[in-house]
């Protein structure tokens, strides 16, 4: 099954993430985000980081989840490769992200992402699964 697809845009870049359920689509959105940021093939899932996010609705929760991951990358130097959503409701998410701290000798940053945007934000249930569409500010 396709997990995510990068969407080109005139000024920004975005992605579509897919999943059999909402947990999967949130996890795959995390994968897509870090696929844009870095070459994740060189990232080893050595450490796992507990990430909790809240939102007033499902879409805001998706933006907040990705924003928290982006903060961890930007401020603390984490690069993540694997994501596991432990629990998920409409307003609250608990997940584990696995990866390691940025090592300039082994890791390559492809495209620094400034922020997660609400532009054309979409989180929808399709027949047989879920789809998210997110554009990020670069």
């Amino acid at each position: 099954m396709l997990t995510f697809r990068i969407l080109e845009h005139t000024a920004d870049i975005g992605f579509e993430a897919f999943g059999a359920n909402r947990q999967e689509v949130f996890a795959n959105a995390g994968r897509a985000l870090f696929h844009i940021i870095a070459d994740t093939k060189s990232v080893e899932p050595r450490e796992q980081v507990n990430v909790s996010a809240r939102g007033t609705n499902r879409s805001e929760l998706l933006v907040n989840w990705l924003s928290d991951l982006l903060y961890l990358q930007d401020a603390e130097g984490w690069l993540f490769r694997e994501f596991e959503v432990i629990s998920l409701s409409d307003h609250c998410l608990q997940a584990v992200a696995r990866g390691e701290k940025f090592d300039p000798a082994r890791h390559q940053v492809k495209l620094p992402v400034k922020a997660i945007t609400y532009h054309q934000l979409l989180l929808e249930e399709l027949e047989g699964g879920w789809r998210a569409q997110v554009y990020v500010d670069i």
């Binding site: 796992q48 980081v49 507990n50 990430v51 909790s52 928290d68 961890l72 584990v96």
Partner: peptide, 8 residues
């Protein structure tokens, strides 16, 4: 506990 880095 699992070996988890907490963000709180």
């Amino acid at each position: 506990p699992e070996d988890v880095v907490d963000t709180d």
